[in-house]
Design a protein around this nucleic acid. Structure first.
Length: 481
RNA sequence: CGGGGCGUGGCGCAGUCCGGUUAGCGCGCGCGCUUUGGGAGCGCGAGGUCCCCGGUUCAAAUCCGGGCGCCCCGACCA
C-alpha cells in the first residue's frame, strides 16, 4: 500500500480495477471461490440501479414474482440448445437431507425453464396473455475465470420473462426492454452503448435472437451490459405452453426473456474510473454530495458543523443525497481522497476561511484538481449543487461518448481489423457478410468477436470485407470481458 | 485441462538459494500528546500453528518427500 496511486492505463488496468473495487469498499474477497461479498457501499450502488429499473418495469406493466432457486435437472434438459449452452457452467445439488436425491437439482443459472413450467400451468387462453413477469434473484454460473462484478460465480440480477400471443408482440416486447436497458445505461449510468443484434454464435442458448447493449471500457474492451432475448416458440414447445385463441384453437405462446446484472456496477467502475478512483454518475451515486468540515479548534468546529448541518438538511429537502463526514481525528486531506476514491460526484468544504467570507468551496469529482473547485456564497450553494449534479451527469456521459467515438475505427478489410484489435486501438466497425465459421476464425486469430450488429444500419455503400451467404451489415468487433 | 507464479500478524512483503540470536519491515489497528485548507508527527502497545503432514539434523520459515490451497495467462461466459 506504499504506492497509493491508481493507474487505469493499459496493462495495469486489471490491477487498477481490483484496487478500486476493494479499496473503495464496494466488495470484499469471499471465502467461496469465484464469489465476492458485496459491501454496503457497493450494494447501495446496485440498489440505485435496481430502483431505476423497477420503476421502468412498473411503467410497462410488469409484475415482480419469485421462483425457486433449485431447478429439477430434467427441466434444464428439455430445450436442447439451452442445455448444450449451459451445461458446462452448472452447479448441481445431488444430496438433500443426508440422502442422495433421486433427481439432482440444478442451482439456477437462469430461470427460463422453471418459469416456463409455471407459465404453462398459468396460461389457458389468450385472455391470460400477455403474461409479464420479472424476478429479482441470484443466479449461479460456475465460471472458469471469475472477476469481481464482471464475472462472478454467483451474481444478482433481474430476469424478465414474458409470454405473448403473437410473434410480433414478443418482438416488440424484446425491443422495448432493450430500450429500457439502453436508457438505464445512458441516462442513469452515463455510459454510451451500442444497441444491436447478437451474431448467431453469441446469442443466448435457446433464443431465436438476442439483442444486447455493448459498452466500451476505458481499456478499450467491450462489456455486454444487458441482453434481451426473443425466444420464439422454443421454450413454449419445450414446456407445452399453449393458449386457446378466440377461434378456439390451441397455439404455442411466444416468449421473451431479458436481464441486467450486478455486472452493471463493474461497467460503471470501468467506464468512468480514473487515477483517483471511482467516478459515479450523480443519478446513481449513493452519496451525491459529501460535506467536509475543516476546523482548528472547538469553537470553529461547532460553527462549521452547524452551518454544514443546515446545508445538508436543505439538500435533503431538495431530494439530494448528502453525507456529512463528521469523523474525528482525520485530516481534511485524508477525507478528500477517501471520498474521491469512492466516486462521490460533489464535495462541499467548509472551513474558517470560507466561514469568514460567507462561502463554501465546491469541488467536483469529474474534473480533477483546481479546475474542479469553485467558491460560492453559502446562500447560493444549494441551487449551485443542484445545477452541478446535472452538469456532472452530462459531462461524464459526454466524456465517455467522446472516448467511445475516438476508439471505434471503420475498417475496410481483415488486415485493418487486425491492426485495430491487435494494436489495442479499440473496436473495429466493418461491413460484414461472413459466416459463423469466419467469425470463429477471427476470434481464434485476434481474440475479437462480433459484439453486435448495431440497430442503426446505414445504407450499404461499402464492399464487405468477408463474403458470405447473408447480405452485408455493419458489425462491431472487439475484445470482450 | 495446458503454461507460469505464490502460500510468513488484518493487508502488502523481506528472510528460503547457503539451516543457527528473541522471525523482521511498511500499511492498518489500540492508547497518549501535539495536529487538522490535499492521504499528519512523535511516543508507547497489541497482534504469528512461518499452508498441512511426515522425514533429515544438536537445531528447520529455510533442506528432502508427500499433500492441500490460491493467483495470473488461455479455452467458457451476463
Amino acid at each position: 500500500m506504499s504506492d497509493q496511486r491508481l493507474t487505469p492505463q493499459a496493462e495495469d488496468f486489471a490491477r487498477w480495477y481490483n484496487e478500486v473495487v476493494y479499496r473503495a469498499e464496494l466488495a470484499s474477497q469471499s471465502p467461496v471461490r469465484g464469489c465476492i461479498i458485496i459491501r454496503p457501499y457497493g450494494f447501495e450502488l446496485w440498489e440505485a440501479i435496481k430502483n431505476s429499473l423497477d420503476q421502468k418495469f412498473k411503467a410497462t406493466g410488469h409484475q415482480n414474482a419469485y421462483f425457486p432457486l433449485f431447478i429439477p435437472q430434467s427441466y434444464i434438459q428439455r430445450e436442447s440448445e439451452h442445455i448444450e449452452g449451459f451445461s458446462p457452467e452448472l452447479a448441481v445439488v445431488t444430496h438433500g437431507g443426508g440422502k442422495e436425491l433421486e433427481e439432482p437439482y440444478v442451482v439456477r443459472p437462469t430461470s427460463e425453464t422453471i418459469i416456463g413450467e409455471a407459465f404453462a400451468n398459468w396460461i389457458q387462453s389468450y385472455r391470460d396473455l400477455p403474461l409479464l413477469i420479472n424476478q429479482w434473484s441470484n443466479v449461479v454460473r460456475w465460471e472458469l475465470r471469475p472477476r469481481a462484478f464482471l464475472r462472478t460465480s454467483e451474481f444478482l440480477w433481474q430476469e424478465g420473462h414474458t409470454a405473448h400471443a403473437t410473434r410480433e408482440e414478443a418482438e416488440a416486447e424484446t425491443r422495448q426492454m432493450l430500450q429500457i436497458y439502453e436508457d438505464l445505461a445512458q441516462e442513469d449510468a452515463a455510459i454510451p452503448v451500442f444497441s444491436g443484434l447478437k451474431s448467431e454464435k453469441e446469442r443466448f442458448a435457446g433464443a431465436v435472437h438476442t439483442y444486447t447493449i455493448e459498452a466500451m471500457m476505458r481499456d478499450g474492451r467491450a462489456l455486454q451490459s444487458g441482453t434481451s432475448h426473443n425466444l420464439g416458440q422454443n421454450f413454449a414447445r419445450a414446456f407445452d405452453m399453449k393458449y386457446l385463441t378466440p377461434e378456439n384453437k390451441q397455439e404455442f405462446c411466444w416468449t421473451t426473456s431479458w436481464g441486467m446484472s450486478t455486472r452493471m456496477v463493474g461497467a460503471i467502475i470501468m467506464a468512468h474510473g480514473n487515477d483517483q478512483g471511482l467516478r459515479l454518475p450523480p443519478r446513481l451515486a449513493p452519496i451525491q454530495v459529501v460535506l467536509i468540515p475543516i476546523h482548528r479548534n472547538e469553537e470553529q468546529r461547532s460553527q462549521v458543523m452547524e452551518k454544514l448541518q443546515a446545508i445538508s438538511q436543505g439538500l435533503s429537502e431538495r431530494g439530494i443525497r448528502p453525507h456529512l463526514d463528521d469523523r474525528e481525528g482525520l485530516t481534511p486531506g485524508y477525507k478528500f481522497n477517501d471520498w474521491e476514491l469512492r466516486g462521490v460526484p460533489l464535495r462541499i468544504e467548509l472551513g474558517p476561511r470560507d466561514l469568514a467570507g460567507g462561502n463554501v468551496t465546491l469541488s467536483r469529482r469529474d474534473v480533477s484538481g483546481k479546475a474542479g473547485k469553485q467558491i460560492v456564497a453559502i446562500e447560493a450553494c444549494q441551487s449551485t449543487v443542484e445545477d452541478l449534479l446535472v452538469q456532472i451527469q452530462r459531462n461524464l456521459f459526454a466524456e465517455a461518448k467522446q472516448f467511445q467515438d475516438d476508439h471505434v475505427h471503420d475498417v475496410k478489410n481483415y488486415e485493418e481489423l487486425r491492426q485495430v484489435i491487435e494494436g489495442n486501438a479499440g473496436w473495429a466497425r466493418a461491413w460484414w457478410a461472413g459466416s459463423g465459421a469466419d467469425e470463429l476464425r477471427i476470434q481464434q486469430e485476434t481474440s475479437a468477436t462480433i459484439r453486435c450488429f448495431p440497430m442503426e444500419q446505414p445504407e450499404s455503400a461499402e464492399p464487405c470485407f468477408f463474403t458470405g451467404a447473408t447480405p452485408a451489415q455493419i458489425a462491431l468487433f472487439a475484445k470482450a470481458y
